[in-house]
Structures are given as structure tokens and as C-alpha cells.
């Protein structure tokens, strides 16, 4: 009981403290690479946390979650192409676009269950992908280079490595806290209850559809925000952001870390990105190693990293 309480509160707290100290480490050891890499990781962690919210708590296996990264990134990139750099315009717009896409595709996908849901979200993700590849005015297949970063009321916060890191960190922390609070609310109980026994939920008068859709839209919106950050981080947007491999990787991050705890998704994102970076340092064909590793994790690694930490 004590250890459970410790991992439930202490672990995420420790995690965020360590993450908050990364720029300090980078400054002391003059290691810019670590800072940039950590920024990228945290952006993916935001997406992974949003995915865990619907996957871990609502049992919605969305195989098209990368689409929101792309849509959010394109919203920022396209506005920049038209010389709109203000973050207070582009970021809310990126989120609104994603919310709308999630609302429409979610409303259709959530009419189905199980494998249908997996395949349909995959197909809608692919739709977003192909649509951007055919946007010839915005680079099509080749993507779109941004000649700068978003502006936050003339502060230039997006341009400094450290300040940008803390923006990303702040978004991650806020997303985590908001979603965590929600999982414990009445709303969260409905989501989890519907996962455990849908017939029982209906019998007490709750039709889970609207709640699932709300969670789905929320997750898409947060992922879109991460996409807007990603565009700034890379100063480049491309259809590759939303390839279905990316959606698969996001699920892998959630499972790798341990599904249904939110901070597990952060751990998973870190572990996945570090693993990829390390393996690809040995060989460009790192997927030859990662593919079988993933199979082994699925077959024998129940509970992910969190499960391992708890010793279960």
C-alpha cells in the first residue's frame, strides 16, 4: 500500500523534477544536444500522455493519433507561410483544427468498437496524411520549411533553447495535471466504468458515447498543441509527422511505459526515444533490433516500465 502510494505520487513528482533540471545539466556540461533531444522527447511525451488518456482509461485504441501532431504542425506552418507568426493566433487555431477533426472522425469511429475502431482511426489518420501530401501549395510530399519560430507577444521565448524547453515542459506538466485530475473526476469514472462494463453503464442510465467522444476530442486537441510545438522545434512540417508508423510508435510509447497512469506514457516516450537514439547509433538498421524487441515486450512485458518498477 505504501509503495503503491509512493509510485502514484512520488514517481511522477520525481520525474518532473528531473525533467525540470535538464537545462541546468545542459548548461553545466555545455551539452546543447541533450537539451534539444529532451525537448523533442517532451513533445512526444505530451502526445503520448494524451493518447494514454483515451487508450488507458477509455480503452480507445486510436491508431491515428499522429494525425493530430501533423494537423497542429501544419496549422502553425501554413500560417507562418502567410506571415502569421503570433502564437496566440496559431496555437489556438492549431488546437481548434484538431478538435474539429477529432470531433468529426471520433463521432463516426466511436459508433464502432474493437477492431473496427482501430482500423477506422488508422484510415482517418491516413486520410489526413494523404491530404497533406497533395497540398502542393504547401510543399506536398516534401513538406514545408518555416523560416523562423512563433512569436509570443514579442518575447522571443520560442527562440531560446532553454526558454523553449520550459515552454514544452510547462505544456507537458499542465496536460498531465489536467488529465490526471479528470481521470479522478465524475467524468473519469464514467470513462473507466464504460471500459469495465458497458452494459452496466447503460443500465444505470449512462450512454458512454458522449463521454468517450469528449475524451477523444480532448486528447486530439492536446496532441494538436504538441504538433504546434513540434513545428516550432523542427522549424519544418511534413506529412511524415502523421505517417501511420508514427501512430504505431505512439501506442508503443504508451504500452512501453505502462498504460493507464499518464506518467507511464511520459516514461514510455523517454524510453522509446532514447532506445531509438541509442540503437540507431549502432546501426542505421536499428528496426531489425527494435521490431523483435517490441514483440518480446508485448509477449512477456506486461505492465510496461511501471509494472517493472512496481515489481509486478
Amino acid at each position: 500500500m505504501m509503495t503503491r502510494r509512493l509510485t502514484a505520487v512520488g514517481l511522477p513528482a520525481a520525474l518532473f523534477v528531473v525533467l525540470a533540471l535538464v537545462p541546468l545539466y545542459a548548461g553545466v556540461f555545455d551539452d546543447r544536444f541533450v537539451l534539444l533531444f529532451a525537448t523533442r522527447i517532451l513533445i512526444f511525451a505530451i502526445v503520448a500522455v494524451s493518447l494514454d488518456f483515451i487508450l488507458g482509461y477509455g480503452e480507445m485504441v486510436s491508431f491515428g493519433h499522429a494525425a493530430y501532431i501533423g494537423l497542429g504542425a501544419y496549422a502553425v506552418g501554413i500560417l507562418a507561410e502567410h506571415d502569421v507568426w503570433a502564437a496566440w493566433i496559431s496555437f489556438p487555431l492549431a488546437m481548434a483544427v484538431c478538435a474539429l477533426f477529432a470531433l468529426v472522425t471520433g463521432a463516426i469511429s466511436l459508433r464502432t468498437r474493437g477492431v473496427y475502431f482501430i482500423m477506422i482511426t488508422l484510415a482517418f489518420g491516413q486520410m489526413a496524411y494523404y491530404t497533406t501530401t497533395s497540398l502542393s501549395a504547401y510543399g506536398g510530399d516534401d513538406g514545408l520549411t518555416m523560416w523562423g519560430r512563433s512569436e509570443l507577444f514579442g518575447t522571443g521565448l520560442f527562440n531560446g533553447d532553454t526558454s523553449f524547453y520550459y515552454i514544452v515542459f510547462g505544456v507537458l506538466l499542465a496536460s498531465y495535471l489536467i488529465l490526471k485530475v479528470m481521470t479522478r473526476s465524475r467524468f473519469g469514472r464514467v470513462l473507466e466504468g464504460a471500459k469495465q462494463n458497458e452494459a452496466r453503464m447503460e443500465a444505470i442510465g449512462i450512454d458512454p458515447y458522449r463521454y468517450r467522444l469528449t475524451a477523444f476530442v480532448l486528447a486530439g486537441t492536446i496532441a494538436g498543441l504538441a504538433g504546434a510545438l513540434m513545428a516550432n522545434q523542427a522549424e519544418f512540417v511534413s506529412p511524415a509527422y502523421m505517417s501511420w508508423h508514427r501512430s504505431g510508435e505512439l501506442i508503443v510509447m504508451v504500452i512501453l511505459g505502462g498504460m493507464g497512469h499518464l506518467h507511464g506514457a511520459i516514461l514510455g516516450a523517454i524510453a522509446y526515444m532514447v532506445l531509438e537514439e541509442t540503437l540507431s547509433g549502432y546501426t542505421e538498421h536499428w528496426r531489425l533490433i527494435f521490431g523483435p524487441l517490441l514483440i518480446l515486450i508485448v509477449l512477456y512485458g506486461k505492465g510496461g516500465l511501471l509494472g517493472a518498477i512496481r515489481g509486478r
Binding site: V61, I251, R287, L288, G291, P292, L293, L294, V298
Partner: peptide
């Protein structure tokens, strides 16, 4: 889905 995704990564590579 995850395990067969692993198979895809491996075989494509």
C-alpha cells in the same frame, strides 16, 4: 496490433 507492428518494422528493414 503491437506485436504485428513489430513484425512490420523488422521485415521492412
Amino acid at each position: 496490433v503491437l506485436a504485428t507492428f513489430g513484425v512490420i518494422l523488422f521485415l521492412n528493414e
